[in-house]
Amino acid sequence: MTPDTDPLLEVANLRTTFDTDGGELVAVDGIDFSIDAGETVCIVGESGSGKTVATESITRLVKSPPATVTGSVRFDGEDLLEASEERLREIRGYNIAHIFQNPQEAMNHCYSVGWQITEALTIHTDASQEEARAKAIDLLDRVGIANASSRFDDYPHEFSGGQKQRVMIAMALVGDPDLLIADEPTTALDVTVQGQILKLLDDLQEEFDMGILFVTHDLGVVAQIADRIVVMYAGKVMERGDVYDVFDRPAHPYTQQLLECLPGTSDSIGGIPGSLPSPTDPPDGCRFAPRCEHAVADCEAGGQPREVEVRPGQAVSCVYYQSGYDASVVEADTGDAETSRGVGDD
């Protein structure tokens, strides 16, 4: 938060495109964000918003070609997009660890989980087999696998979904990472297990002082774990800010509608009509304009509106917050959402 210390990870103008037969597909279109040490930043968005590609671009996990990543990703003062493939391999899994949505697919079913953890350990450190084993058991123990030493030699299929995700987290912790990138780690899990995993991540963050970049579409999860939020839509950042600010005073109409979609928040259930624009042929102006109930002509011309800081730390990319517009039209406390809707239609 303090301006004189550099953030752990600073992403600037990150743009990831894919060469496809249908033309250039822009998955991530120039986004910026930063994470401080020990902080949790959530990237929120619907599927297809480019949030997963954005996180995978950080350590260049996206397959290239067809992908092209441009911009800058500064991690501890080093630009990862410039780094050699060799250097990246060192960083991946060691300084920056990934956990994924589906633990089933992220594990090798031919090897025992203990073997897989010790393998990661021996790749990154010069630990002996015994040391690696002891460390692996310790890690399994720390992520809450009961009876770790006897489960060490078990195979992935002998674990339940939640336990698998715990094992994945243990693997991610092998290198004592500074940054953990968690891509929807709880989406495939039961709600009872989801809570346990979130709590575990929270505890581990404190213990290891990690920065966490958490990707999810579930605002309930966001509220539980995030310090700051980046709301993405169709490859662009719509809004960013402190978790309290964004939940209390969502500035962008998209954020507001996302929040209204949550069960139990309003009397009527109803989603956001329409669907994501085509990533090969994005609309002019604000990406959300075609689905926005407040859209005016200016929303659909030019590029994505530049970000305007509405309060310290909270910035929004919406024409209504630029000079010459009445921001009160879209600035919604949930209470007068109805009235503001009326004004916006004019």
């Binding site: 009961a146 339940s160 939640g162 336990q163 709600v191 009872t192 989801q194 809570g195 346990q196 979130l198 709590k199 579930d218 605002l219 309930g220 999860v221 966001v222 509220a223 539980q224 995030a226 978790v243 309290y244 939940f247 929040l259 949550l262 928040t265």
Partner: peptide, 21 residues
């Protein structure tokens, strides 16, 4: 108790179920 509440101020007073099914 395990339903995540979309409120960043809500404290986690979740009942943790021990063990697995």
């Amino acid at each position: 108790s395990s339903i995540p509440t979309p409120d960043p101020r809500a404290t986690l007073d979740e009942i943790e179920l021990t063990g697995t099914v």
